[in-house]
Design a protein around this nucleic acid. Structure first.
Lengths: 210, 210, 210, 210
DNA sequence: AATGAATGAGAGTTCATTCAT
DNA sequence: GATGAATGAACTCTCATTCAT
């Protein structure tokens, strides 16, 4: 939108245990307020109150509201990206069917594990330099997935980067729908199963035998 | 978040040509401001200014900011949902491969046709009762798609409604990623082609021959 | 308050019958809106709508909102003042007991006859140059009453003007209370009777036999 | 008009001395602005400015404009009501002539003591739920006065509650007239004297000897 | 370090008034 | 003459941010 990717610095390094706890509490509180009140009513005062600290303290740890929300978003994105990266690293050289299953599990589990946060953060993603951060996380995952695809033991991919992009998007879409629809239409395990079918079918269709 | 689906009424019926133009201009302006400034800076005053009318006029046509954004979102969602419904109706009884292609074309074209609007509206979708409206549009499309799947000439689906949900999500995900990443990584036609592959592969994998 | 007594001119003389009707309708509408919505929500548009005319028409007859409300107030005040003047003229030379009765009847009847208007107008009286107009009406009534008292056939008043002021205030107070308390505690006739007792007692106490 | 009696809560308890001073300053300022500019121009911003604080501070102590004005009105009404109650309690069992004098003194003194506030508040009384509050204050005073009348040592009242209502109204009317007419026609002491005459005359006329 | 009262720019919304039709 | 869409100043209220305590 308007702003370049801001540096995302904390005003202080939360070296002491106390500080770290406070920062964590504020992050939690932000998500809760986001879910309970919506972005427009997510104010620094309300977040501080929910976290049980004063606004002043909040500003001791985050230079402004922007940074607070960006930090919360970044943390979540990093969590998911790392889960994907780990899984991709572990399945280099595997068969595509296994890659598909592993990727779906890694991604969906990481998302559903923090379902509430995920849901809340879709709202931030569109603002606060969120788009850039989301983009960056996607790049990381894309690199990991296309790297993995290129090493598939049983299939060749003509354009691993493109296939990775479609694959990730195709997995993320239904997950997002599930998280955003309040009444959870489908249990997480069914979702995973169905997405494994999807991922496997796509990867096979998009590749040729070695 | 907090509010139920609001009635989405215009304050006045835009019967006269002049009014209709003004309403349209305001809608356009809302999207432009949304894209240029982000939601937080999308104020009624700015939208009115961009539309070349006074705030007062804006409020003559929309009871409040909420309704304005909701109306813009609703218009877009309806456009896409109708395109999908039309395509599904036309392909009842067809082969799944054709269904897949038709659905992808219909959805992606409708989205890319109003790419700017699409992109801008993801931000609204999370607020302003947007979630409910998005949900409703999804229901319409789901019904259309699962209805179509059930009539496939060459395959049987055990649970058309579930498959429809996954399919739509899987198509929407990559489209969304494309729209949200500012630098358009992939041309629209390539995207369609790849999604057709995805959709066909999934539908075949998820069904059994008649 | 801030402004001197404004000239209270209509923009046009309502010579034609049509105009006179419209003016009257607007006046009525103003009172209704005042009662139904309170001053703060008494807008020119609402008054015009209630009167069944356009805002534009309202402004054809009244130069501004101020004048409209002032005119409505003035009309009511004049009505009451005239009733009092008439009664006072008719009872010059009478006995104070009869004067008291006549005055109470005239004043209370005039007020209760337009109870709704009376009630609504207390709100205007404090603004819109209302104070001055109320003052002027009081002067007229004061002059009439003290003029009458001075001619009493059976008693002498040392300071008719002061006695008139107290008398009028003492009658107006309970009437106002009755009108302002929504649940009408006392029937109008009981009020009159009680006020006659009050007025007679005061006038006798404040005067000496001839 | 539209609303029930609002709870009249301050947003924060003005426990600290500083806060209490600020709240008081805002109340004072409200009265001054009311007198200087009239209700329509009595805006929260102007009141805050006159009080020497920011609008934000005003809203820290009063949830909305409504409550601010209501609080100021309530304070004044309570002051007067308490003065009347005190006087009535002290004159239970007294002779009606003494009761009359005491009541007039208590009421008129309380009003004139805060003449400016009194005058300003007549304007609020008609709006902002003022009517209800005024009504409540009147009830308190009515109860006190009729309770006192019932204990009169030298006279019997057939309907103390009705007599109390008329008496209070008859005293309030002239006081109001005096406060509202800018040029003070009559000194306060003369007014009191005249009202004592009025009150005594009425109470005697409305009662019978024991 | 922590607090939370104070600030004031800025948002949403209304409404008296005008004027092209 | 009548209409009512358009205007934009002004109002109420919120909230990110600061700083004296």
């Amino acid at each position: 939108m308007t702003d370049p990717v801001p540096p995302l610095v904390h005003r202080k390094k939360p070296l002491q245990a106390r500080s770290a706890l406070t920062v964590a509490a504020i992050g939690e509180a932000a998500i809760e307020v986001l879910l309970a009140e919506g972005i427009e009513r997510t104010t620094t005062t309300r977040v501080a109150a929910r976290a049980g600290v004063s606004v002043g303290s909040l500003y001791q740890y985050f230079p402004d509201k922007h940074s607070l929300l960006a930090a919360v978003l970044a943390q979540h994105l990093t969590h998911v990206a790392m889960a994907v990266e780990k899984s991709c690293t572990e399945h280099r050289g595997a068969k595509v069917a296994d890659m598909a299953q592993a990727l779906v599990h890694a991604y969906v589990s990481a998302k559903l594990e923090h379902a509430r946060a995920s849901q809340a953060l879709y709202a931030i993603a569109a603002e606060h330099g969120g788009a850039e951060r989301v983009e960056m996380a996607r790049e990381r995952m894309l690199a990991a997935v296309s790297g993995m695809l290129a090493t598939a033991g049983d299939r060749d991919f003509s354009d691993p980067s493109r296939h990775a992009a479609i694959l990730l998007g195709a997995i993320a879409g239904p997950v997002r729908n599930l998280l955003e629809s309040n009444r959870h239409v489908m249990p997480g395990d069914d979702l995973k199963e169905e997405l494994v079918t999807l991922a496997r079918a796509y990867l096979l269709a998009a590749s040729t035998p070695c």
